[in-house]
Nucleic acid binder design. Sequence first.
DNA 1: CCTCACTCGATGCACCTGCATCAATCTTGA
DNA 2: TCAAGATTGATGCAGGTGCATCGAGTGAGG
Lengths: 165, 165
Amino acid sequence: MKRKPSTEATSAWIRLMRVQSRVLDCVEQDLKKAGFPPLAWYDALLELSRAPSGELRPVELERQMLIPQYSTSRLIDRLVDEGLACRRECKIDKRGQFVEITEAGRELQKRMWGAYSAAIEKYVGSKLSDADAVKLSGLLDRLGCSCGEMKLPPVVNVNASSPSR
Amino acid sequence: MKRKPSTEATSAWIRLMRVQSRVLDCVEQDLKKAGFPPLAWYDALLELSRAPSGELRPVELERQMLIPQYSTSRLIDRLVDEGLACRRECKIDKRGQFVEITEAGRELQKRMWGAYSAAIEKYVGSKLSDADAVKLSGLLDRLGCSCGEMKLPPVVNVNASSPSR
DNA sequence: CCTCACTCGATGCACCTGCATCAATCTTGA
DNA sequence: TCAAGATTGATGCAGGTGCATCGAGTGAGG
């Protein structure tokens, strides 16, 4: 027989949805008002800037960012159009390519982190003690794994000067 | 001088973003695979079904759902196209209208809740104890309020047979 | 009564997304 | 060596979203 969904789980679900969409909206708005592109661009630039020589295969980027393939493809188009990245041929696999971050890309990533980290502080840091933030992370982590077939990217360390993911 | 964003807050932020997008994706996929429309439709139908006579002004719906005006307008279009709601003239304010849920709308809302609650149970309830779900809700609530000018809708009770929001 | 500011809801436009599919290339295994 | 299948990345199409703006209607002040 079916188990009735717990009221607590439902309530947690609702809050999770509402709160993240509100907070995300706030952060994105702050960035937009400061004249920056969407957060997805930042994420991509960050991944690229971390990569060994500032370049990644699109398929790697896709796996890091957990977004669909076509989405990656078009995001790269836009980054290239804006001169934030450029495409390089991939000698070892002619189907593929490398995407390399440019100086302008690195520079934008750093400038965005200024605004981004300020927004996180404003909408998250200022509302939660460190201890509570840790508790929250812990509880969220338990939800994170194994929705269907899970492919969590090697979750990176969160250091002071760039947020990882 | 600027305060440096806390590592804990950043980490909590990242997890919040990642986890909710994963969990939401999973739930939406389950619903889609069961042949149901997107969750936004469910939310709208739920709000309507709860309203005094099953009808609301679009502007009310918009405030309940915290989505932009044009979004409400087009969502209503779609619901009406599918026969899940119908428009009624508003005698007291000729600019406005009422949107009324139909029987088909009520019926769909109930059927969706079956699949929806099962998905919540699967992706949230089964991973957290009730006590942890309560803790999570509490921590999230602290983030929820006052992003810029806050207009929290009168948050409704979460009862056993329909999830509220 | 009239005007002006505001609210309600719709819509044209640009862009973004999901889906399906494609061509090119790589890999596997007989 | 070669055919079958998998992988990489791009793209046409339909539909969803944000933004700006519009017309209609309301309501407060003079």
